[in-house]
Amino acid sequence: MIIKRYQVTEKRIAKWIKEGRGTGQGASYLPWLTIHDTSSIGLSSRPPGVTTGRIHHLLSNNEAAAFYQAEWSPAVVDIREQFPLPRSETRRIASEMGVFHPRDHGVDVVMTTDLLLDVRGHDKWLSFALPSGQERRLLAIACKSDDVFGDARALDKLEIERRYWASRGVMWTLLTASQLCRARMLKLQWLMEWFWLDHMARERVPAFLAGCQTVLAHLPVASTSTAGAFLSGLDGTYGWMPGTALSMVRHLAARKRVIMDTEGPFDAWGPLSQIRLPDAVVAAAKVA
């Protein structure tokens, strides 16, 4: 549930339109709503986007779960959150439905879609929405809690949104919390935190990246029974601080230079097979 921090007015809407909110693509896109404009019941967040190269404004855990999955998908080429719908269109649709347009203190609000994705090709995660072999297209996603089906007013708003996108030939889908695996979100977030190395002192980065190469060199010939033993062994052998090898693996996994399962948490006592090289790399090594 999203609570506005201040009253919506025509003046504020005009100001946001003038600022260019809801326009642009990739790094230049400006979301209609930011976390500074709302008080979310749930966790709002501002993760840096790898796909877009900008900070994203996510207003709920459900949005975050869908966002990280979109980030991870190789088929998603752009992500726009809090995408505004023209009031002239949503007003028309509400009138056709015989329902009230969403309002705040007597002012028709600008309705938004939680995530608007540009998709090229196909990906397993998108199988719920896109047929195999589909060319580049838009996909609009509403991310809601499971109790949305018991809220008649919320369903009216979603129907306005669905009809808007249908009128433009854009596929729209509703994802609820039960469809958005929280464990996967946490795992992807855990990995993506190490995609960038901005939090590391600049002078330490070359040594860290050299260490990543060391991890890659040891992984194919490792004989330890657990992932934790492999990582702690590298820390000890090279005099790294405890946990350094794991950070390197997270960076490599975020960059997709190694593969880690995204369905659950990393288990240090689990098998080393949790960390593996991409099949193409393994095949090339065998040929060599």
Rank of each mutant, 00 (worst) to 15 (best):
I3E: 13
K4S: 15
Y6A: 12
Q7H: 08
Q7A: 13
V8T: 15
E10T: 12
K15L: 10
K15V: 13
G20M: 13
R21Y: 13
G24S: 13
G26N: 07
A27Q: 15
S28K: 10
L30P: 13
P31W: 11
P31I: 14
T34P: 07
D37S: 12
D37W: 12
S45W: 06
R54D: 05
H57Q: 11
A66L: 12
P74R: 14
P74C: 12
D78R: 04
E81Y: 00
F83H: 09
L85D: 04
P86L: 03
P86F: 13
S88K: 10
M97H: 03
G98K: 02
G98M: 01
V107T: 05
T112R: 03
L115R: 01
L117E: 00
L117R: 01
D118F: 02
G121D: 01
G121W: 02
H122Q: 04
H122V: 03
H122T: 07
D123W: 03
K124T: 12
S127G: 03
F128A: 14
L130I: 14
Q134L: 12
R136W: 08
R137D: 07
A140S: 06
A140P: 04
A142W: 05
C143V: 05
D147F: 13
D147A: 10
V148N: 06
F149I: 11
R153D: 08
R162C: 08
Y164R: 01
W165G: 06
W172A: 04
W172V: 03
A177D: 13
C181P: 12
K187F: 04
W196G: 14
R204C: 12
A207Y: 08
A207G: 09
T214M: 10
L216Q: 02
H218N: 08
L219Y: 00
A222R: 02
A222D: 01
A222N: 03
T226F: 10
G228T: 08
F230N: 02
S232V: 10
D235F: 00
G236I: 10
Y238C: 01
Y238N: 01
M248G: 02
V249P: 01
R250I: 01
R250Q: 09
H251R: 06
H251Y: 11
L252K: 00
R255Q: 11
D261E: 14
E263S: 15
P265Y: 04
F266V: 15
G270D: 06
L272R: 11
S273H: 02
I275W: 02
V281N: 04
V282R: 13
V282E: 09
A285S: 11
